[in-house]
Amino acid sequence: MTTVPAYKNVDRPRQDQLNRMRKVAKYRAKGRRIALNSVAVMVFVVAMFPVYWMVSTAFKTNDQIFTTEFIPFPTSFTFEHLDRVLSEGVAGNSIWLYLRNSAIVALGTVAVGAVFSLLAATAVARFRFKGRTSFLIALLVVQMIPAEALLIPLFLSVKRLGLYDQLLGLIVINVGLTLPFGIWMLRTFVASVPKSLEEAAWIDGASRMTAFWKVLFPLVAPGLVATSIFSFITAWNELIFALIIMSDSSGYTMPVALQFFFGQRGTDWGAIMASSTLMTIPVVVFFLLVQRRMVSGLVAGAVKG
């Protein structure tokens, strides 16, 4: 019982102490914020520098490129490399042609893949049916198959079907490569739309088709865009099948064409950096557009199943 009066006396010094502690905490928080922000800036620089270096090399003159010195900014700013890859290009064709081929393959893949994956995702997310689980397991397992295992049989089939050296053959293969993940990702978007919305439409007399188009589809559309962009990027970046299926240089896609800059007599780094920049731009734009949704789709598709 002797401690009770003792408390009364400490009242004032405690307040002082508290104030001092608050001040220290405030400084410490400030120091912490500065430290965190500087680490963040460092990570930013490390992540960005290689990309920046690609773009800046593309706009430097050759004497600023081929030097052992560090020239942080292209002070001799030039479009000559860009001009050269667009007019002369590489392997006998302008870079435009390869960009066009890549775009055809990627857009074709997306067009077919979007329809197929929407149908299948609706089936697994909206219906309970026999074989549904097996289908989902199959979706998971086929994603483990490495492209190299499919390379040889698909190469032989493509030759047999007369699709060798045709962009159509690449589109077909890319649809196969991107579809399992597309379905997997899209089904979480379909499942997240409450079924009661469609049921309400049914009660109002809408057919399944109408309910699908007027109710479900608009709500799933953003997810479909994210999934399509993912397929687009996969097809746009695909190298290994394009290497073996396209033998004529007029059918090369960008990833294949880039390989031809590495010549016997030294590499034209200005030209290759200009081409890589051109190839990277659409992907970066898409990434920034759907950044948030893509992450949630990837993680949800993977984590929650």
Binding site: L36, N37, A40, V43, F44, A47, M48, P50, V51, W53, M54, T57, I233, W236, N237, L239, M254, P255, L258, Q259, W269, I272, M273, S276, M279, T280, V283, V284, F286, F287, L288, Q291
Partner: peptide, 27 residues
């Protein structure tokens, strides 16, 4: 700050694999 950093690392993520190879070969 986190949006700023996310956009920065997004660039590294977005670079196509072939271009990654090209860039690091150059570095």
């Amino acid at each position: 700050m986190s949006t700023f950093l996310i956009i920065g690392i997004m660039f590294a993520w977005a670079v196509p694999p072939v271009a990654q190879g090209v860039i690091w070969r150059w570095l």
